[in-house]
Simulated assay, not measured.
Amino acid sequence: MRHLTRTALLALALVVTACSPATDEASVPSITVSGQPDSQRSLAPGEVLGARQEAGIDACPASDAKATQREGGLPAVTLDCLGGDSTVNLAGLPTGKPRVINIWAQWCQPCAEEAPSFAQVARETRGQVDFLGINYGDPFVGKAIDFAVEHQTLYPQLVDPEQTVRAPLKVPGPPQTYFVDAQGTLVHHSTTVYKTPDALRADVEKYLGVTAS
C-alpha cells in the first residue's frame, strides 16, 4: 500500500511538472496585424514594419554606413531597424546630441522592470537626449513590439537576433545601458537595472550633463 502511494504521488508530480510553463517570459498584451492575433507574435518579415508603425514606434536614425569606430566610440556594427526598412551602423550614428542605448529583450524580467523608467526619462529629455533600443537575442519580434507598446518604449529600436554586439559592446546579457556623449564617445557602460526613473535621471545627468524635466 505504501509503495502504491509513493507511485501515485510520483505520477501526480510528473503531471503537474508537465503542465507548468517552460519559461517565465513576461506576459505582454497582443496587438493585431491585419486583424489577425498571433499568440506567439511570430510575424512574417513583411508584417513587422506594419506592426511597428501601427504600434507608434519611431523610425531609426540615419547613419554613415561607411564609418569606422572612432577612438572611445561605438563599434562599427550594422544592425537592422525593427521592421527592416533601414540599417544602422552604430559607429556612424549622428553626433551633436548625447545618446542612451539600452539593450533589452521581451523575455528578460529585469528589462520589464526598468522599461517604464526608460520610457519616462526618454519623454522628459526628448530633444536633448536621443534614446535607442537594441532588441537582443529575441526569437519573437512581434512580442518585442508588444513589449514596447506595453511599456511605451516607443523610441527607435534596432534588432540583434544573432547577438552581434555581444563581443564589441561586452554584453553578458540584457539589460545593459550605454551612455554616449554629444561627440560620440562612449562615456559609461552600466549593468544597473534602472527600477526607478530617478536612478536613470541621475545617470543621465552624471554622464551626459542633461537634467530631465
Rank of each mutant, 00 (worst) to 15 (best):
N89R: 07
L158V: 04
E162S: 15
I145D: 00
Q176R: 15
A119V: 01
P175N: 11
Q152L: 12
K97H: 11
H189S: 14
V88H: 06
D130S: 12
K97I: 09
R99S: 06
N102D: 12
G92N: 07
D130G: 06
L158D: 00
T164E: 14
L132W: 05
C111F: 03
L132E: 02
Q157C: 05
G84R: 05
P156L: 08
F118H: 05
R201P: 08
T191M: 13
L158K: 03
E124C: 01
G133K: 08
L186I: 07
W104I: 09
Q157A: 10
A119G: 00
D80Q: 14
N102F: 10
S117V: 08
P94G: 13
A199C: 09
K170Y: 12
F131P: 03
H188D: 06
S117W: 06
I134S: 01
V193T: 14
P172Y: 11
V159D: 02
Q157K: 11
P94E: 12
T191Y: 12
T196N: 09
V100M: 03
C111D: 01
G133Y: 08
L90G: 04
R201V: 03
Q183M: 06
P175H: 02
A119N: 06
Y194T: 11
P139Q: 00
A144P: 00
V129P: 00
G96Q: 00
D130W: 00
A202R: 13
H189M: 13
E114T: 07
D138P: 04
T78L: 02
L169W: 06
V121T: 07
A182H: 14
